[in-house]
């Protein structure tokens, strides 16, 4: 996936090299063969790495289109002889997840219902946090930030029981709101760090100019800062979408049976005790669950890298 980027970087480096040489010794650009030993080794390693990661995916895709008798026959690497879409339909609509047999469909929508508010809420709060920490320093803001960052080192397990009690006291335990709250809390350290570093990299004079122009906290945030932070917002969105979509623990603890996210329901399908395991349905269900983060990465890979780089400068 990253091959084109790699290639173009190499080309750029070569160009720089050539220029340097020309400046030094007045040589013409030296013709370079495409197959140098270095490149052969490099691409061999990349190729093997790709195979290593793609092969399981291949097996999954192939298996999901086979019928059960064909799977029992063995030959897991062979393409399907009798091509069937039945497992996909079953995984989506009628596979049994515990007591109900509605497939992954309700789980998908539960995940969406958890995902969208969690991502939006955590991103917005973190952006305001980062902006406040950089531009409106208050007494103890550095300590506040350190504590926040320290929070990201505390294992989740330690916080679960207190959070169960807190959400119970708030009366939202076992509802979607509990999961949203928990995701927002746990997204805070890393997202705040991202936004803080990004805002710190913007010239402080912009903020000063806006203040001289009479803009206040929110107006500077919405009219000056936010329009400049698209790259870092994309990074935050990707981190949160994939993180929250892939979450299992908080979903199973806080959501309540009615609101189990897709990951939990996938687990229930795959681990259901009754009957013989339907590998083709399991494979289809797994791919379906993984599809959302996968699509996100494909669409935004380039933006993601750029944004990470932008957030990395200035600690």
């Amino acid at each position: 996936m990253s091959n084109p980027a790699q290639l173009s970087t190499n080309v750029a480096l070569d160009a720089v090299d050539n220029k340097g040489m020309r400046l030094e010794g007045n040589h013409g650009p030296r013709p370079k063969p495409f197959f140098t030993p270095k490149r052969i080794v490099l691409y061999s390693i990349l190729f093997v790495a790709c195979l290593y990661y793609l092969f399981p995916l291949y097996v999954m895709v192939v298996t999901s289109f086979k019928t059960m008798p064909e799977i029992r026959f063995g030959n897991i690497f062979a393409p399907p002889i009798e091509f069937t879409g039945e497992p996909w339909v079953k995984a989506w609509t009628s596979a049994c997840t515990g007591l109900t047999c509605n497939g992954l469909n309700p789980g998908f929508w539960n995940s969406v219902k958890i995902l969208i508010p969690s991502v939006l809420l955590s991103t917005v709060v973190a952006a305001v946090n980062g902006y406040g920490l950089v531009n409106w320093k208050f007494k103890g803001s550095e300590i506040f930030f350190s504590i926040l960052i320290f929070g990201s080192f505390i294992p989740y397990q330690v916080m679960i029981y207190p959070l169960v009690m807190i959400t119970r006291e708030l009366g939202i335990y076992g509802s979607i709101w509990a999961v949203i709250l928990v995701h927002t809390i746990f997204g805070m350290p890393i997202l705040t760090l991202l936004f803080r570093n990004y805002f710190a990299s913007l010239p402080v004079e912009l903020f000063k100019a806006a203040r001289v122009d009479g803009a206040g906290f929110w107006r500077i945030f919405f009219e000056i800062m936010l329009p400049m932070s698209l790259p870092i917002i994309v990074v935050a969105l990707i981190l949160q979408v994939t993180g929250i979509w892939n979450d299992f623990l908080f979903g199973v603890v806080f959501a309540g049976t009615q609101n189990y996210p897709m990951t939990v329901q996938l687990n229930n399908i795959v681990n259901s005790a009754q009957g013989s395991p339907e590998y083709n349905v399991n494979m289809a269900a797994t791919i379906l669950t993984g599809l959302v983060p996968l699509i996100i990465y494909f669409i935004s890979g380039r933006l993601f890298v750029r944004g990470i780089a932008a957030g990395a400068v200035k600690g």
């Binding site: 010239p203 004079e205 912009l206 000063k208 100019a209 806006a210 001289v212 009219e223 000056i224 400049m228």
Partner: peptide, 14 residues
């Protein structure tokens, strides 16, 4: 009642 001009111009880029 002041206006300020900065070294880096500080124009709002968007």
């Amino acid at each position: 009642g002041i206006g300020m001009v900065f070294q880096s111009y500080a124009l709002y880029p968007q």
